[in-house]
Amino acid sequence: MIIVMKAGAAKKDMDEVLKRIKELGYMPHVIHGSTRDVIGAVGDERGKMVLHSLESLHGVENVVPILQPYKLASKEIKKESSVVRINDEVSIGGERVIMMAGPCSVENERQIVETAEAVKKAGASILRGGAFKPRTSPYSFQGLEEEGLKLLAKAREVTGLPFVTEVINPETAELVAEYSDILQIGARNAQNFALLKKVGQLGRPVLLKRGMSMTIQEFLMSAEYVMSEGNQSVILCERGIRTFETATRNTLDLSAVPVLKEKTHLPVVVDPSHGTGNHHYVAPMCYAAVACGADGLIVEVHPDPEHASSDGPQSLKPAKFQAMMDKLRLFAEAAGRTL
């Protein structure tokens, strides 16, 4: 249920509503709006009608049901688009399209610092890089783990760029959160519910990638797992889905962007590197993603992709990334946004 507070409702009225929601066995989640606050009361659907009794409390305007199974992620609870703040300079979901760029895997200090400097020069606002790598083969490079996190922190110190890196299990989630600015949940873990609940408790923004075969509703239900633990700073990422087509690594579902924009208030970014698996197709998909309303992009960049430890074929060299960014600014302008 959504409890809509009256405009200008006093704090004591809000506190009383929160108290009553808990007494009724539900978890309250406060959403601050531009003119009034609303409270999402989440819990067992079978007894939700008891929440209608809250309409009699002072300061409450009305109580309405949330029809979607994803409660906190739904636009029913928050009409205006959410903006996820990363630091004092960078937020995702506003007028500016945010570029996240860097290598698939952190390999050494020179590689990650050189790449960070290059993508920042080109206009990226966030560094991406993998320290823990979930790979299809157990014999593939699995990442430098904590040493990789330290190298990402070094690159942040040198360039000032916040960084996003992947969390692959609940056991190492707190370690990753100590170092990183954004916790990434990869496609293979998009329905790892124990991990989703864990990152929801850590207080870091979460970049949630769509699973390879997930429907939009399943994707939003995964976001709901994170948000139900009290973390409202969730960024959705379309990274391609598995279809019968073999010309690209995945099928980049750009139609998901406007669909998600209609159904949820959460910001949406696009990953054309994993979506296509081929560096030749990354730039066109970036242009198309901005045109269809994406709030950000996450692109793989490597100074020597021919010798990359992972995902070399889909990684852009710094010079090609710079050229793409120059052209991408024109697409952002045409869409009424900045880069």
Rank of each mutant, 00 (worst) to 15 (best):
R239V: 14
P284I: 13
T251W: 10
S273H: 05
L207K: 00
M227P: 08
R242I: 07
K209M: 14
K261L: 12
E224Q: 13
G275R: 04
P267C: 15
L207C: 06
Q217A: 09
N250I: 10
V269K: 09
N250T: 02
Q232A: 15
V206L: 10
D271T: 04
G230C: 01
I216T: 13
M221S: 09
M285L: 15
N250V: 08
L254I: 15
K209G: 15
V282P: 00
Q217F: 02
Y225W: 03
N231F: 15
H274A: 13
V234M: 00
G275M: 07
V234Y: 14
M285F: 14
K261D: 04
C237V: 13
G240C: 06
V259F: 09
P267F: 13
S273K: 10
L208E: 14
P272D: 09
V234Q: 00
V206P: 06
L260H: 00
T248N: 12
H280D: 14
I241Y: 07
Q217M: 11
L236Y: 13
V282G: 03
H279A: 15
S255I: 10
I235C: 08
C237Q: 03
S228V: 10
G240A: 08
V269D: 06
A223Y: 10
E262G: 08
N250H: 13
M212K: 01
Q232T: 14
M212W: 04
A283W: 00
A256G: 07
T276M: 05
G240Q: 00
L207P: 01
G277F: 08
L266A: 10
I216L: 15
L208R: 01
M212C: 00
I235E: 07
T251M: 14
M214V: 09
T264L: 08
M285Q: 12
G240E: 04
D253K: 05
C237L: 07
M227A: 12
G211E: 11
M285V: 14
L254T: 09
P258W: 11
T246H: 13
T264I: 08
H274P: 10
G211F: 06
M227W: 12
N231C: 05
S255D: 01
S255W: 07
C237G: 14
L260S: 05
L252W: 00
G230M: 03
M212F: 15
L207Q: 01
E218A: 12
L260K: 03
T243E: 02
V268D: 05
M227D: 12
A283N: 02
G277T: 13
T276R: 06
E238R: 01
H280Y: 11
E262N: 00
H279I: 04
I216Y: 07
P272W: 02
A256M: 03
R249C: 11
T248H: 03
R210Y: 13
G211D: 13
K263D: 05
R242Y: 07
R249M: 14
V234D: 09
Q217S: 07
V269W: 02
N278Q: 00
S233R: 12
R249T: 12
E238D: 13
Q232K: 04
S222F: 06
Q232C: 02
H265V: 07
V234I: 03
M227C: 00
G211M: 06
R249Y: 12
G275P: 09
E238C: 04
P284W: 01
V257N: 11
K209Y: 13
M285C: 15
N278F: 13
G275Y: 05
A283R: 01
V268H: 11
I241W: 03
L260R: 03
A247E: 12
I216W: 11
V259H: 01
N250E: 08
N250D: 11
